[in-house]
Amino acid sequence: MPAPMDAFDEVRPAADCLDLLTAPVAAAIRDWRGSVPVEQLLFVDTDPAIADTALLVERHGSWLLEQSANCVVVAGKRGGAVTLAACVILSHTRADVNGVVRRQLGARKASFAPMDTAVGESGMEYGGITPIGLPADWPLLLDAAVADMPYALIGSGSGSRRGKLIVPGKALAELPGAVVLDGLGTVPGQ
């Protein structure tokens, strides 16, 4: 299977594109400390009109679906306390919010965070939220299948949904607050 970077005409190191990223994502890349060299974090400029995974796959090929991951923001509630967390799952799966996520957060109830909360608290554009640069106090729940990927195509956190990041799964697993979980992403209908 080709690598995600094979789908795009121009792939650049993300560190060379900080001006195209939101402040929290740019700061995380600028201050990168993981064992994966920052040069392996890549940026591709994409049309915001095809930012959704289905449209991107339609434009660049169905094989890209297996190389893509989504980051969704969830809210776990217990008593009056709300914990925001991010879940990174393969694009063709759904986050097991009521099972794996709820148990991991120790919540009585878990659901997807409202759009205004996800955008306001992350500082990123809805539909383009990325695990890189999220608030340090958020748990980052990462499906084991994503952590095992040589490279994952993820949102770039850009303010206009423009662009994607291509990042080794190992780098995602090393992000602050990351917990790698089996079964976080489930295939719909199974």
Results as ranks from 00 to 15, higher is better:
Met1Asn: 10
Pro13His: 09
Pro13Ile: 08
Asp16Phe: 06
Cys17Thr: 12
Leu20Gly: 09
Leu20Gln: 15
Thr22Pro: 02
Ala26Met: 08
Ala27Ser: 15
Ala28Val: 02
Ala28Leu: 08
Ile29Asn: 11
Asp31Leu: 11
Gly34Pro: 08
Ser35Arg: 14
Val36Ile: 15
Val38Phe: 01
Gln40Val: 00
Gln40Ser: 14
Phe43Leu: 12
Phe43Tyr: 15
Asp45Phe: 02
Thr46Lys: 05
Pro48Arg: 10
Ala49Cys: 08
Ala51Leu: 03
Asp52Met: 11
Thr53Leu: 01
Ala54Ile: 08
Leu55Glu: 15
His60Cys: 01
Ser62Lys: 13
Trp63Val: 07
Trp63Gln: 13
Leu65Tyr: 07
Gln67Ala: 14
Ser68Trp: 07
Cys71Tyr: 00
Ala75Met: 08
Ala75Pro: 04
Gly79Gln: 12
Gly80Ala: 14
Ala81Phe: 03
Ala81Trp: 06
Val82Lys: 13
Val82Pro: 05
Thr83Pro: 04
Ala85Asp: 01
Ala86Asn: 02
Ile89His: 07
His92Tyr: 15
His92Arg: 14
Arg94Lys: 14
Gly99His: 03
Gly99Leu: 03
Val101Lys: 02
Arg103Glu: 03
Gln104His: 12
Ala107Thr: 10
Arg108Glu: 15
Lys109Pro: 09
Ser111Ile: 00
Phe112Cys: 01
Phe112Leu: 14
Ala113Tyr: 00
Glu121Asp: 10
Gly127Pro: 07
Pro131Phe: 01
Pro131Gln: 09
Ile132Gln: 01
Gly133Phe: 09
Leu134Gln: 06
Leu140Asp: 00
Ala144Val: 13
Ala147Ser: 12
Pro150Gly: 08
Tyr151Gln: 15
Ala152His: 03
Gly157Tyr: 03
Gly159Phe: 08
Gly159Asn: 14
Ser160Ala: 14
Arg162Lys: 13
Arg162Ile: 05
Gly163Glu: 06
Val167Pro: 02
Pro168Ala: 09
Pro168Phe: 05
Gly169Lys: 06
Glu174Lys: 00
Pro176Tyr: 03
Pro176Glu: 12
Val180Glu: 13
Asp182Val: 09
Gly183Val: 12
Gly185Cys: 09
Thr186Gln: 15
Thr186Trp: 10
Pro188Gln: 03
Gly189Val: 04
Gln190Met: 11
